[in-house]
């Protein structure tokens, strides 16, 4: 990938990712509503919500919350930019883990019981996700010989052919990452849980808007990671990647609507078990063969 292509991709990501993320979130709400025999909000509703939030007055318990949330947002955006610039995927996953620490701090700094407990659960969520993400990076190296995104997508064969187990583990933790039942212990999209809104309980107005926008950036990033499993040097694979992304997204919505919420201990045990078995077996096979 030439420098010009990298720069174009980065600029496209920074400008278009929130819009694509908002659209995906809106489609999510519409399809969930139709599954529940409701009509549902308009597809652009998340965008309207964020615009309204940005106009509201900030009443934060502690003024440092604004700084922490903006840091979280900037770090996540930088991670996405690095990914789209074609840099190595292991570093991307590590920086993503660091950015979530800022989210934790932003929730804990208010001193509210609900928020703090939600933040602790968020840390547990991160613990549940990290192994699968790191395994994926290692799997990419073993399958394609490189950590760099540019080399992975330039290979002759799609990475998924050699790493189906890693893909399965990654899909499993995607449910946790996207905060969907059965794993929405830290912050559900609906406020009907015992921690009120969990980690975002004490966030309002601009801070909540920044959180939402960061969620969109992150969703696009995760979908892009799904894409690099599929994309290879053949141009038709790009279309295949888009189809797979849409299918994966639909699967997440389906799982959200057919499961109750599990407690964090179950989430941790389940995700580590699935990661170890599916990604672990794949890893051994790749190293042996």
């Amino acid at each position: 990938m030439t420098t010009a292509v990298r720069v174009i991709f980065v600029v496209l990501y920074v400008l278009l990712a929130p819009l694509i993320g908002a659209l995906l979130a809106g489609i999510d709400r519409k399809i969930s509503a139709r599954m529940q025999r409701r009509i549902g909000p308009p597809v652009l509703q998340p965008l309207y919500d964020v615009i309204k939030l940005l106009k509201k007055q900030v009443i934060a318990v502690d003024r440092s919350q604004g700084f922490l949330i903006v840091s979280y947002m900037i770090l996540t955006v930088i991670t996405g930019c690095l990914f789209f610039a074609g840099v190595d995927v292991l570093m991307v996953f590590f920086i993503l883990g660091t950015s979530s620490v800022f989210l934790y701090l932003a929730a804990v700094v208010t001193g509210s019981a609900m928020s703090s407990m939600g933040a602790q659960r968020e840390l547990v969520q991160d613990m549940a996700i990290e192994p699968a993400l790191l395994f994926s990076a290692v799997g990419f190296y073993l399958a394609t010989g490189s950590f760099e995104v540019g080399s992975i997508i330039g290979g002759p064969v799609s990475a998924i052919v050699k790493m189906p187990g890693f893909f399965a583990a990654f899909l499993f933790v995607l449910t946790i990452k996207m905060r969907k039942s059965p794993f929405d212990t830290a912050q559900g999209t609906h406020a009907h849980q015992e921690l009120v809104k969990g980690i975002t309980t004490e966030m309002g107005a601009k801070n909540l808007a920044y959180f939402e926008i960061t969620e969109w950036y992150e969703t696009v990033l995760m979908m892009a990671v799904v894409a690099i499993y599929i994309i290879n040097s053949h141009p038709a694979s790009i279309i295949a990647a888009i189809v797979v992304i849409l299918l994966v997204y639909f699967l997440e919505i389906l799982i959200d609507n057919t499961c109750a919420r599990l407690k964090w201990k179950d989430m941790l045990v389940l995700s580590w078990t699935v990661t170890l078995i599916s990604a672990g077996v794949n890893l051994i096979l790749l190293m042996v063969i």
Partner: peptide, 16 residues
């Protein structure tokens, strides 16, 4: 109850 353990679809079915 369905809502309390996070299963919104069941909640809507029962209320329907």
């Amino acid at each position: 109850t369905a809502d309390a353990f996070g299963f919104e679809s069941l909640f809507y079915e029962c209320w329907r």
